[in-house]
Amino acid sequence: MTGRRAGRLLAVLVLVLIMVGPLYLMVTNAFKSQHDILTEPFGWPTSGFSLKYLHAALTSPDFNVVRAYGVTVLFVVAVNVLNLLIVGPASYAIARGTRRYHRAVMLVLLAGLFIPGQTLVIPVIYVLKALGLIGTIPGFLLFETTLTVPTTVFLFVAFVQTVPRELDEAARIDGASRYGTFWRVIFPLMRPVAATAMVLNSAGVWTDFVNPQFILGPQSGVYTVTTGVYAAISRLSTNYTVVYPNILLATAPVIVFYVFMQRRIIGGLTAGAIKG
């Protein structure tokens, strides 16, 4: 029994080490000089910790990290709102539908489930160019929202099918329209599944790199956290006093957010998995 315990303890220790190690380096080295990072990457710096590298990264003329955060948060919110507005009523119509075309629509909407976004970049550029939307925020948001449709439809339809039809009937007798029925009666019940969808979609938009890189493009002058960090450090990747502070600035707020919201985030994912 003690052998098992020791094994368990060892496994946990290794796990903690490999997960915390990179975080430790990221945090401590963001406050160290290049010389100290190169000579004592894991240790205490001879010249002490300093805030000046973080300050330099915050005020860098190449990459405005605060603006990138604002932009990315706005994108995440916009995609989630669009997603709920667009997919919510459609999922309801499909879930309640009894006709053959409902099923057909469902299949079309699920078509993108297994198509990786990156392989669509080239033809999507072609389409958005024809629409005059390439390199614009609306074009980018439309495509990001489209990429969220299949998963969300999947989750929503499955959920609405578990909601008794009697609720709709009651609302209809009270004279509610179909939209009214959905938004006032069904949608409030969908909170858990909507949370799951929002977790998945938010993480997708937040960590996306290819689409802001190619659909939004450099010409828009708009950088998300990922494309901004890439632009800021890919050419300076040997200057660790630029790399570590930028990585810290890019990750710290989202990690803090995650730690506070972890129950909801992990819970949301888990709810989705059990549904699945």
Partner: peptide, 17 residues
């Protein structure tokens, strides 16, 4: 924003910007 000026320019040409 890409790996170098050439690829960035080509990407911008593709997007017409």
């Amino acid at each position: 924003s890409g790996t170098n000026v050439q690829s960035t320019l080509q990407q911008e040409l593709v997007s017409g910007a």
